[in-house]
Design a protein around this nucleic acid. Structure first.
Lengths: 342, 342
DNA sequence: TTGTAGGCGTTATCAC
DNA sequence: GTGATAACGCCTACAA
């Protein structure tokens, strides 16, 4: 069936298209109560639904925002399987929906820019997770739409940023282990890139060690991809080659699960033989057996806050280039850390 | 900065806008090789990116498809946290990207229709997960765009459907338990709605029992929301009140995790005291400890297939109203089932 | 082969 | 208060 347009409504209501548009866009003071009634009736009768493409064309406003999340190196697939990202997205969605925005979710192919989507779709703004090449950000700046970076340490006032204090988080986890009497504490982590969250957590780990007068041993840091699989490998290595290690701090819950599996497979029990603390507190953390002690961040809240932040900037309420918004962190004690007798 | 339009390119290349459009849309036989070169140069120089809104307006084609997933009753939040859905979405995305489509992901508020988004955004098609009111589908039919239903038993040739044989899956799980010597087998499941996947799995469970000459006892079915939390509750009840039960089939992996926790908390070990098999084989199934024995389906493949299916229908390659596409199922043996001595 | 012009659905600027 | 009408960026007859 042919699309019902504003003209059809105008005809049905016996008024002009302009009147319809006024009525639709809340400029009801420009139209008499009487015609307003007629218009409303006609809209309902015809089941008229406005075309956002046409609107976008004239208004330069699409009510569409872009969400970028990292993708796997190998398969170019979204890392949506990573529960962390899906929870953030879920948070963003819930906030956007309240304000009648939709979003387009995508990875960004290596080397390709995000300009395309931004311009093609007339995006009103974007929320970016993950870290990308310098060039990526440079291009983004040129399109000149509000942008919120989640968990980024990029130093650029052109973007709004929201994240957590990863250094403090790393320290929190390590301090907790130390407070429980551990001295030989391993770190299992994704690759430590300059200015990445992982580096900050690593720094927090080191500083906790130092503050406690503990020796930092680079043999105790196991660094590779942030994945369950690598966690298993690291856990296994620790079980087999490092009988001295009594605790490990994994910089992501997914890795912590792997570590626990690897440790167990290697014959060492958690937490009896070695303690483990994770990072993030994804929903699975409390379902895992044993339940994971971890550094909690409000993942969904991150998404909600990011969305709100973006919307405010779009609406001109919030100024650009404000300070990075820091969300709170908290250590949640569960079952994977054992108190060592001193 | 002002948007670079087709006119700018035309001016820069010294040709008409029509020529640009031809060049852009692969009608290169309508333009000489020479001007084609000039056009390409101009496009590159100006970094021209077409506006899809404008295109959509004239072509009635948006390169946008809608994905609908269920949302929590209470908070109206996407169930993207459910790893099953995120993996399907991930699969869809990877296929869509190959064909230069984008998607809009959303839940659908109770009672509200999906017509709005469909018309507002000029969606080229939609992929629907979950089950909704009859009215929802009726409306959907009216917009007359290709639609793929995932895991639906709706009987309507207006939609293309893809899923698995849930009855066979339920039977597969139960048969496996029976083959391992179990006779008192509980079912832990989400609410059994008519024509839902859960009902089919339940039917499979019953038929396996019957076929083996086992007594079906409704006291052995624990039915409530499909969630980890309910799994825990059911596991606990089984541990405390049903010493006779030696095995449970949970109709979703998430529930199975809960069951195992509840059982363990209730003092019964898995698989020593009671065996558990799940359904889906989400990534977490092999990370869980003990690793979950479960009925595996190719979740990402479901998404990919659905997307391909939809795209084919949009392109007119595949006919509408074909048979439901069935993806294979397989039982993967891991660590949560114990063989009973007869 | 190339260019002109009308129209897609909507909003906004004017006159009335 | 109301209604023509000109954009918005693009595509595509149709004409040249």
């Amino acid at each position: 069936m042919r699309r019902v347009t504003i003209k059809d409504v105008a005809k049905a209501a016996g008024v002009s298209t302009a009147a319809i548009s006024y009525a639709l866009n809340g400029k009801e003071d420009k139209v008499s109560a009487e015609t307003l009634e007629k218009i409303k009736a006609a809209i309902a009768a015809l089941n008229y639904i406005p075309d956002y493409s046409a609107r976008s064309l004239v208004n330069n406003k699409s009510f569409l925002i872009g969400i970028v999340i990292p993708q796997t190196e190998s398969h170019r697939q979204l890392i949506l399987e990573n529960p962390f990202y899906s929870e953030v997205v879920s948070g963003i969605e819930s906030e956007l929906r309240k304000h009648n925005y939709h979003f387009i979710l995508s990875g960004v192919d290596k080397g390709r820019s995000y300009l395309d989507i931004t311009m093609q779709r007339n995006l009103d703004g974007a929320i970016i997770m993950g870290i990308y090449h310098e060039k990526f950000y440079e291009e983004l700046k040129q399109v000149n739409i509000p942008i919120v970076l989640i968990d980024s340490y990029i130093n650029d006032t052109a973007f709004r940023k929201i994240g957590i204090d990863d250094t403090a988080g790393g320290k929190l986890a390590t301090d907790y282990l130390i407070a429980n009497g551990h001295t030989n504490i391993a770190l299992v982590t994704g690759t430590i890139k300059k200015d990445g969250v992982v580096e900050k957590r690593f720094l927090g780990y080191k500083s906790a060690l130092q503050e406690a007068g503990l020796f930092y041993d680079s043999d105790y840091v196991f660094e590779d991809s942030v994945s369950y699989e690598y966690g298993v490998a690291a856990g296994r290595t620790i079980a087999e080659k490092h009988p001295d290690i009594t605790a490990v701090f994994a910089t992501a819950d997914m890795m912590a699960f792997g570590v626990i599996s690897g440790l167990t497979a290697g014959g060492r029990n958690v937490p009896e033989d070695v303690s483990v603390v994770g990072f993030d507190d994804i929903p699975m953390a409390r379902m895992f057996m044993p339940q994971l002690t971890t550094v909690r961040q409000d993942i969904k809240g991150k998404g909600i806050t990011a969305a709100r932040c973006l919307l405010d900037t779009i609406d001109g309420i919030a100024p650009n280039g404000t300070e990075k918004l820091m969300l709170p962190l908290e250590l949640v004690e569960r079952q994977t850390v054992k108190r060592l007798r001193p």
